[in-house]
Design a protein around this nucleic acid. Sequence first.
DNA 1: TAGATTGTTAATCGATTAACAATC
DNA 2: TAGATTGTTAATCGATTAACAATC
Lengths: 208, 208
Amino acid sequence: MIGRNCIVRLSRYKNALYQFKKLGVVKIFSDNLAEAVNVTASQVRKDFSIFGISGNKRGGYQVEVLIEQLKDILGKNEVQKAVIVGAGNIGRALMNYTGFEKEGITIVAAFDIDPHKFNEQANVPIFGIDKLNSFISNNKITIGIIAVPAVAAQQVLDLMEHAGVKGVLNFAPISLRANNNIVVNNINLELELENLIYYINASARTKE
Amino acid sequence: MIGRNCIVRLSRYKNALYQFKKLGVVKIFSDNLAEAVNVTASQVRKDFSIFGISGNKRGGYQVEVLIEQLKDILGKNEVQKAVIVGAGNIGRALMNYTGFEKEGITIVAAFDIDPHKFNEQANVPIFGIDKLNSFISNNKITIGIIAVPAVAAQQVLDLMEHAGVKGVLNFAPISLRANNNIVVNNINLELELENLIYYINASARTKE
DNA sequence: TAGATTGTTAATCGATTAACAATC
DNA sequence: TAGATTGTTAATCGATTAACAATC
């Protein structure tokens, strides 16, 4: 399987290419792209060759074509539906986050255990967690977002997996285990902060 | 410099150790910890040896002692003050997020460009962005959290850097550049979703 | 003691980079 | 054509894992 870092770089190439396109750039060379994304030109060409993307010797790559090829690889050409479980701070922020639409992801519903939070009229309706299973299977939901406290997270993941979700973005500060039927990406804010503090301190030490 | 993955593992060891402690476990062996964190026992011992953590041959490691040693390395023994710039969806969610306190991080203020969002009375007061520079230097703020749209992010980073912030957590969907005086961790939700979609599709393909 | 576990060194693995022939 | 850039192979680098002597 192809490593996460490689796929992350493809996303960055794509983002950079959108910038170039906006500036009217039509063709681009591996070292332009490398500089924009802060990697080596070899890395760019290697990544492309893994996915069979080819350019023109001496002519570089067509920006437009390259964007389409990357979109194709990253699978952004069909819209995906997602649900959120947990209508707390993070969950509500994600419901209102506008950045997902442009990535082809629509958040169609949220679920919570607390009846005070139910709101079937909202832009993104909030239902009881007991409706999760049928909602996912009836609406062919492929993506689940977990935004519940750590203690509840594994249980929610199991529910989602059982209902047929294919991929999960987990914001609970705990590493979840899933079997091979489902992909889980963990976003652990506490861990990121802890990590940041380590490097702040490390950097202070080297300066002394 | 020690790689990010290694530091991330230290955080995970610590989390796992808290669980063990809660269960009344007093001493632990490298392979217990390895299993809990899903790495090899060699990895655990190697990581510990890098930081001079040693156990007892045949006796393993004392859970309590190990937790303290890890806390020490991760630099969690003094409280750090943080500010947020951007009081939109993500910014407000982070202001109310309770998980940071237990990591020794206090969010003391937020800043925005929109006067409608100002609120000096709030639990986490929201000020105009023009106050950012003096607030950071007067209050010796070490950590900045960026939760503004992509177009504004680099500018905010420059402000923070100039005011003396040491580390930044960036939620804007753009990779920021900073010089060596400041550490930046990027959390890119759109990129995480894009990445998830790739692996969902890849996993579907291998099953066909 | 005999057996189990650490700490560290050497081997392996995978990812990144350098080099260069092919070629536009 | 001469010069520049790709695509790919080989070399390098760093991180992970295996092995095992030391020792509790």
